[in-house]
Write a protein that binds this DNA or RNA. Structure first.
Length: 103
DNA sequence: AACCTGACTTCGG
DNA sequence: TCCGAAGCCAGGT
């Protein structure tokens, strides 16, 4: 593997329990790279789909999706709703309830 | 080795 | 409360 940071990040994301979400900064911290939130998003952007990672459980600090394409955002929201995560009228997730503390 | 980029975060107006 | 700018870390070129 070329980058350990990615492996760590992927490992953390795979541990996110169903029905829970986590912010990029949270993943970075759990992976051992506090403050490297952007790196996490970048790592996810590099995903090819072969990893089978629950990327949809990773959102930004606002509790919303940072995806550029609306189709992708809708997909993410749909996947989370299917797991029990609730979105408010603004399309935001209640981090107080669904944020995974990690462990 | 230096510079650029990015699915972020936070502070300020 | 909402929008814009600066700061962050790691990887890629």
């Amino acid at each position: 593997m070329k980058s350990q940071a990615f492996e760590r990040i992927y490992e953390i994301i795979q541990k996110i329990p169903k029905g829970k979400v986590v912010t990029y900064g949270q993943v970075a911290a759990l992976a051992g790279y506090p403050g490297a939130a952007r790196t996490v998003g970048w790592a996810l952007g590099s995903l090819t789909g072969e990893k089978d990672l629950p990327w949809h459980r990773v959102i930004n600090a606002s509790g919303k999706s940072s995806l550029a394409e609306e189709t992708q955002r809708k997909l993410q929201q749909a996947l989370l709703e299917a797991e029990g995560v609730v979105f408010d009228e603004n399309g935001k997730v209640d981090l107080e309830k669904f944020r995974w503390k990690g462990k």
